[in-house]
Amino acid sequence: MKQSVCSQASESETTIKAIDDFLLDFMTLVFVVESGEEEFQGSVRKLARLKLKKLKRIATILA
């Protein structure tokens, strides 16, 4: 079944938003790690894994 143009646009916006959120969080986490705050590394890794899982779910839904 073909998706409507509106549905595809909505999915694209959702994907773009998720990617933007991931990149912003990732850049923030890189800054924290590079600044030498070693006690944040566990939290940084956990957040990065969660964001990647979210992107994978969105990509799977859109595929």
Rank of each mutant, 00 (worst) to 15 (best):
K51Y: 03
L52Q: 06
L24Y: 11
E13A: 15
L47S: 10
L62E: 09
L47Y: 02
Q3V: 00
G36T: 06
E13K: 11
V30M: 10
L24K: 15
K54R: 12
Q8A: 11
S10A: 08
L52D: 03
F22M: 07
M27W: 07
F26R: 09
S4Q: 08
E34F: 08
E39D: 14
R45T: 07
I61D: 06
G42D: 12
C6H: 04
I16W: 09
L23I: 15
S10F: 07
Q41G: 02
V32R: 13
K53P: 00
E39C: 01
A48I: 01
S7W: 01
S12W: 11
I61C: 02
S4K: 12
F31S: 13
T15P: 01
I58N: 07
K17P: 00
E39K: 10
E38H: 06
E38W: 03
E13T: 06
E34L: 13
A63H: 06
Q8K: 13
S4M: 06
S35H: 09
D25G: 07
F31Q: 09
L52A: 06
Q41P: 00
I58M: 08
Q8D: 02
Q8F: 01
V30I: 14
L24V: 10
K2F: 00
G36E: 07
S4W: 02
R49L: 10
R45A: 09
E38Y: 04
S10P: 00
A59C: 05
T15L: 15
A59T: 05
K17W: 04
D21P: 01
K56R: 12
Q8Y: 01
Q41N: 12
T60Q: 14
K51M: 04
F22P: 03
V44E: 09
E39S: 12
K56F: 03
K53S: 13
V30N: 08
T60C: 05
Q3K: 14
L52I: 13
K53T: 05
S35K: 14
S35M: 11
I16Q: 12
G36L: 05
K56S: 07
K51S: 11
F31I: 04
E39G: 00
C6V: 06
R49C: 03
M27L: 09
